[in-house]
Amino acid sequence: MSVELWLPALARFEPAHPLRRLLARADRLDDGPRGYLAGLTAWFDAPPPLPAGALTRQLAAGDAGDALWICADPAWVEPDMNGARLLACGQMQLTAAEAAEFAEPLAPLFEEQDMRLELTSPDRWHLRLPQGTAVPEFPAPEQALGENLLQHLPQGPDGRRWRILQNDIQVLLHQHPLNVRRRAAGQPPVNSLWLWGAGALPATVATSLRGVVSDDPLLRALAAGAGIAHRLRTPASGARETAAVGMAPADAAAHWLIDLQDLPAQSIADAWWPMIHTLARQRPLRLSFASGERGELRPWHRWRFWRGGRA
């Protein structure tokens, strides 16, 4: 079984990038899923829609229980001629003090709805909802980034409550004095919360993986739910990182997933290439790009010089 590498979209890799040389010598496989959520559900079997709120809350705080949770990630929304667009979400580089300052006027708003706001981390917030709350399916941030938000707001009678709540959130954050200071410092404002991933903790999560190396909270939460090992990513240094995914005994790294899909291609070339090069010489390696392309490389494939260096 292969070590799996989850990589950014293939188009992000320049022709001279070393990953291109690997892919050129690999056996091409049928295309796999495209995008973040589709990639997760390809490796993990959990009840749809994926309850990201409960899973990530359980990983971070261990108190998800049987409650209903939804992610409420700090976000930056920018008005334009056609409405507004989501420009950033969940990675706003907030300090704990800034997060508490932003949350202060929001907490009473949620309490009026019998919801409780939890600052799980400065950049990852959650809402605990009353049991039986009807929650429409909100798109994940990756599905809405850069797009007109009007096409992603919940519709119909069930969605009206949530549209009003979203509007109230934006009004309170738009006039928050901390945003004036952030803009003056060249930082993006936090003028909205992106609600997504509602649901309760699933009873079971299944996977054929034996472990994951990732900084992504939802991926690590799925690994924890499936009862497999999950390790935070560290800058690769060849032998040290290959040891981290269990290079000894010989089969210990079989079917581990190393998640690099959120990194710039140049960072992969600079910091992670020694690890990838070592793995490719020692065991089967499957390359899965976020754009769907896949290839499988076996150690002897490095002798396929006739295939050149482009893919």
Rank of each mutant, 00 (worst) to 15 (best):
Leu165Lys: 02
Asp270His: 13
Met92Tyr: 04
Met81Arg: 14
Arg160Lys: 13
His174Ile: 08
Pro47Gln: 11
Gly238Phe: 01
Arg307Tyr: 09
Leu29Val: 05
Thr234Glu: 14
Pro284Lys: 13
His17Met: 07
Leu59Asn: 02
Ala54Gln: 05
Ala52Phe: 03
Phe13Val: 06
Leu178Trp: 00
Ala103Ile: 09
Thr204Ile: 11
Ala290Trp: 01
Val135Asp: 00
Met247Cys: 14
Ser237Arg: 07
Trp273Asp: 10
Leu287Ala: 09
Pro108Thr: 14
Asp123Arg: 04
Leu178Ser: 02
Cys71Leu: 05
Gln170Asn: 12
Asp215Ile: 03
Phe102Trp: 11
Val212Glu: 00
Ala265Glu: 02
Arg34Asn: 12
Ile70Glu: 01
Asp73Val: 01
Asn167Val: 03
Ala107Lys: 15
Arg294Ile: 03
Trp196Pro: 00
Leu178Ala: 07
Gly309Ala: 14
Ala103Ser: 11
Arg34Tyr: 09
Ala100Cys: 10
Val213Ser: 06
Ala223Lys: 01
Leu7Asp: 01
Ala269Asn: 03
Arg298Ile: 07
Ala265Leu: 02
Leu109Val: 10
Leu178Glu: 02
His17Gln: 09
Phe289Val: 10
Ala97Ile: 13
Glu78Ile: 05
Leu287Met: 12
Glu101Cys: 11
Trp256Asp: 00
Pro108Asn: 11
Arg302Pro: 02
Ala96Arg: 15
Leu117Arg: 01
Glu137His: 08
Ala252Tyr: 07
Arg57Ser: 04
Ala198Cys: 12
Ser291Met: 05
Pro189Asn: 04
Trp256Gln: 04
Pro74Thr: 06
Met81Lys: 15
Pro157Glu: 14
Arg124His: 12
Pro8Asn: 06
Ala97Met: 13
Arg183Gln: 14
Ile258Pro: 00
Trp125Phe: 01
Arg12Met: 10
Leu219Asp: 01
Leu23Trp: 00
Ala26Met: 02
Leu218Val: 04
Ala16His: 15
Ala271Tyr: 09
Met1Pro: 11
Arg286Glu: 13
Asp66Cys: 08
Trp303Val: 09
Arg294Leu: 02
Ala107Gln: 15
His230Trp: 08
Arg298Val: 10
Val245Phe: 05
Gln113Phe: 08
Glu98Gln: 14
Pro15Cys: 13
